[in-house]
């Protein structure tokens, strides 16, 4: 007999609502049964622990050992707590694990192992947008967001700007880069200059096309909107950190008839870009741009490391959901009791 959720899925050749509802209710039923089973095991664990009396478990010993490492002999300035902020240790461990994964996948990619990155329409559209501007004989506008250079999205935007500058130099198209921060301006000048040199066309660099407008958010926004209205760029590329000005820029660009590619990792601004732009690079896709465009093994390896970390993170989230559910239903139960009982290990 086919399980209810699978039967529900098989019965929805036309993706009918009834099939979907049946599938979901079947899945819900299965999850409910699973959680009830976990609750039962957990409740048995509590009862059994109480019957066996108090005794130090393996997990308790592990915690005691970790406490001794943390506090040393109890003197001030002793133990790990004198060296490191122990509250931040999980973060440090996560970064180290991620760094190791990054190193492993980079080595694999450099050794020739093929790592595939799925097609991202927004990134393919970058070249299309520059090509369109070239055909129309109009400039490309690149907006690197409004944050300072210390923001990682702005630094990343400078890397993409270099690639865009290389393409515009190859095609002989003007590239206008308005900036809000004067430090970003110097970075943008260097990125455009390097892109032109990468293309073998250092003469394509026009210093006046990297423009400092204003340090104020809406004054900058008005300046960029003015460039869109006056100079009519055929392609607007907006990549970086954006705030409330995102929709004003995107809508002005839409009204000027330009093809628009936008991207940010700022989740609150994404709906505006999705609504107003032709292509949107969403969240993590933004940080895959240079790897996707250059296919450099070192960069591609870091994308795979990120994916693997997400798998670990997802597994931990699922485990957390199960444990939180069990905790909610069974007061007094410790999480290690639950894990040990789930895997059939007695104290």
């Amino acid at each position: 007999m086919i399980a209810p959720p699978i039967a529900g899925l098989l019965d929805m050749p036309h993706q009918s609502l009834a099939g979907l509802v049946q599938a979901l209710s079947g899945l819900g039923e299965l999850v409910g049964q699973g959680l009830a089973r976990i609750n039962l095991i957990a409740a048995q664990a509590v009862t059994q622990s109480a019957d066996e009396g108090a005794g130090e478990s393996m997990v308790d010993s592990l915690w005691a050992w970790l406490d001794r490492i943390k506090e040393g002999n109890g003197d001030p300035g002793a133990g790990l707590q004198a060296w490191a902020d122990t509250e931040k240790l999980p973060t440090l461990i996560s970064i180290v694990v991620f760094g190791i994964l990054m190193f492993i996948y980079q080595r694999q990619a450099k050794a020739g192992k093929e790592i595939n990155i799925r097609r991202i329409a927004g990134l393919d559209a970058l070249d299309e947008a520059i090509g369109r501007a070239t055909e129309m004989g109009r400039p490309v506008l690149y907006v690197p967001g409004i944050d300072e250079i210390k923001e990682i999205q702005t630094i990343y935007s400078m890397m993409i700007l270099r690639h865009v500058a290389q393409k515009t130099a190859e095609y002989g198209t003007d590239l206008i880069v308005p900036v809000r921060d004067s430090v970003v301006m110097t970075f943008a000048e260097e990125a455009v200059k390097s892109g032109c040199m990468d293309a073998g066309r250092p003469d394509a660099f026009v210093k006046d096309n990297v423009r400092y407008l204003s340090n104020e958010q809406f004054a900058y926004c008005a300046g960029v909107a003015g460039i869109m209205a006056r100079e009519k760029p055929a392609a607007n590329i907006m990549l970086g950190m954006f705030f409330a000005e995102s929709l004003i820029l995107a809508e002005t660009g839409f009204m000027s008839g330009a093809i628009q590619v936008a991207g940010t990792a700022k989740q609150h601004q994404l709906p505006f870009f999705v609504a107003a732009c032709d292509y949107t690079i969403i969240g993590e896709e933004y940080f895959a741009v240079t790897a996707y465009l250059t296919k450099e093994p070192g960069l591609v390896g870091t994308i795979r490391a990120g994916d693997f970390t997400k798998i670990i993170g997802t597994a931990l989230i699922v485990l957390g959901v199960v444990l939180a559910t069990v905790y909610a239903e069974t007061p007094g139960l410790t999480w290690h009791d639950v894990i040990l009982r789930l895997y059939g290990i007695d104290k």
Binding site: I95, F98, M102, A265, Q267, E284, Y286, F287, I303
Partner: peptide, 18 residues
């Protein structure tokens, strides 16, 4: 939103480490 934040944070971490 949380899915986007997790993905973006890993991207930030990878870029920062690089």
């Amino acid at each position: 939103q949380k899915a986007i934040i997790i993905g973006a944070t890993l991207g930030v971490l990878a870029t920062g480490l690089r």
